[in-house]
Simulated assay, not measured.
Amino acid sequence: MELQALIPNVLTIAGTDPTGGAGIQADLKAFSAHGAYGMSVVTAVVAQNTRGVGSIVAMEPEFVAEQIAAVFDDVRVDAVKIGMVANAEIADAITQSLDKYAQCPVVLDPVMVAKSGDHLLNQQDVDAIRERLVPRATLITPNLPEAAVLLGRDTEMASIEEMRESLADLRDLGADWVLLKGGHLDGAESLDILTGEETAEFTAPRVDTINDHGTGCTLSAAIAALVPRYGYVEAVRRAKEYLTAALRHADELDVGSGHGPVHHFHALWDHTTQKVQS
């Protein structure tokens, strides 16, 4: 792909998070933290907080398509990040819109399994993502539970060796690149494996914090913001370093009573600022 020097315009197509730690809100923060101009298309409005998801209201597929058209009709789009799709009809609307408009990198974070382990989509919705959206993406970023769903497996990978052995099967789903994230494994380090035109492995020390809400959204959004300038391998390397630092600084925030957000602006905010007195 041809790299660019302009400030990239990056579009997120995803659901919302009113507490700001995940979804579109996290994506826009990650875009901004990497010097990209962020734009958004809403697929679903989600009532959630740091303790979990309450309810989801999906947008009409036609309206999702109209939002996408409004952006592409007016703005140069340098990368697209896709998060929560909500249902098969919206997956179809996104795929058709991308086929019509997008000639840029498309990063798909296949949001299908909640942190609790609950599946967020039914089988028809999963099939639509696997059969239509995944082949349209240039990069998919599944974690281990999501990879198991995409591959139709009852159990998720339990070792680094199983991760490596599953890469070919994930590539066969049709995306140009696959980033398989090993954060659900045990161990002192977290391994992610990228495969496409080449294969690279990225490790980082695990960070001891419960404030890990929106990590998948944040990583995939950071990659989308970086790909137009750096290409896939370097974008993933930089994005993983950014997320690790965002986790390391997450406890500086005081947001919610559950799994709080990562600190998207850890490199930009003054860490010496005192907390507001209550």
Score class of each variant (00 low, 15 high):
Met1Ala: 03
Gln4Val: 11
Ala5Lys: 15
Leu6Gly: 10
Ile7Trp: 01
Leu11Glu: 03
Thr16Lys: 11
Gly20Thr: 03
Ile24Trp: 06
Ala26Asn: 06
Ala26Trp: 09
Asp27Ala: 14
Asp27Pro: 11
Gly35Trp: 00
Ala36Ser: 13
Ala36Ile: 04
Met39Ile: 09
Val41Phe: 05
Val41Ala: 15
Val42Met: 13
Val45Ala: 08
Val46Met: 14
Met59Thr: 02
Pro61Gly: 04
Pro61Trp: 02
Glu62Thr: 03
Glu66Pro: 00
Ile68Asp: 01
Ile68Val: 04
Ala69Asn: 04
Ala70Met: 12
Asp74Gly: 04
Val77Glu: 11
Asp78Gln: 12
Ala79Pro: 06
Val80Ser: 02
Lys81Val: 03
Gly83Arg: 13
Gly83Ile: 09
Ala88Gly: 07
Ala88Cys: 06
Glu89Trp: 12
Ile90Met: 12
Ala93Met: 15
Thr95His: 13
Leu98Trp: 12
Leu98Lys: 06
Gln103Lys: 15
Gln103Leu: 06
Leu108Gly: 04
Leu108Met: 09
Pro110Trp: 08
Met112Glu: 03
Val113Gly: 07
Gly117Asp: 09
Asp118Ile: 01
His119Phe: 10
Leu120Thr: 08
Gln124Trp: 01
Val126Ser: 05
Asp127Gly: 07
Ala128His: 05
Arg130Phe: 12
Glu131Ala: 13
Glu131Met: 08
Leu133Phe: 14
Pro135Ala: 05
Arg136Leu: 08
Arg136Phe: 04
Ile140Tyr: 09
Glu146Val: 08
Glu146Cys: 13
Val149Gly: 00
Arg153Pro: 03
Arg153Thr: 07
Arg153Met: 14
Thr155Pro: 04
Ala158Ser: 13
Ala158Asn: 10
Ser159Ala: 01
Ile160Gly: 02
Ile160Asn: 00
Glu162Gln: 15
Met163Cys: 04
Leu167Met: 15
Leu167Asn: 07
Ala168Gln: 15
Ala168Trp: 01
Asp172Glu: 15
Gly174Leu: 14
Gly174Lys: 15
Ala175Met: 06
Trp177Val: 01
Trp177Gly: 02
Val178Phe: 00
Leu180Cys: 06
Asp186Gly: 04
Asp186His: 12
Glu189Phe: 07
Ser190Thr: 12
Leu194Pro: 05
Thr195Trp: 00
Glu201Thr: 06
Phe202Asp: 02
Thr203Leu: 13
Arg206His: 01
Asp208Ile: 01
Asp208Trp: 02
His213Arg: 12
Gly214Ile: 09
Thr215Glu: 04
Thr215His: 10
Cys217Gln: 10
Ser220Asp: 08
Ser220Pro: 08
Ile223Thr: 05
Ala225Trp: 05
Ala225Pro: 08
Leu226Phe: 01
Leu226Ala: 06
Val227Leu: 09
Pro228Ile: 00
Val233Pro: 00
Val236Ser: 05
Arg237Leu: 02
Arg238Trp: 00
Lys240Val: 06
Glu241Phe: 00
Glu241Cys: 01
Glu241Gln: 12
Tyr242Trp: 14
Thr244Phe: 11
Ala245Ser: 15
Arg248His: 14
Arg248Glu: 15
Asp251Pro: 03
Glu252Ala: 07
Glu252Asp: 09
Glu252Phe: 11
Leu253Phe: 14
Asp254Thr: 09
Gly258Lys: 12
His259Asn: 14
Gly260Asp: 07
Gly260Glu: 10
His263Leu: 10
Trp269Arg: 14
Asp270Val: 00
His271Ile: 00
His271Gln: 11
His271Tyr: 00
Thr273Arg: 15
Thr273Ala: 14
Gln274Thr: 04
Val276Lys: 12
Gln277Asp: 03
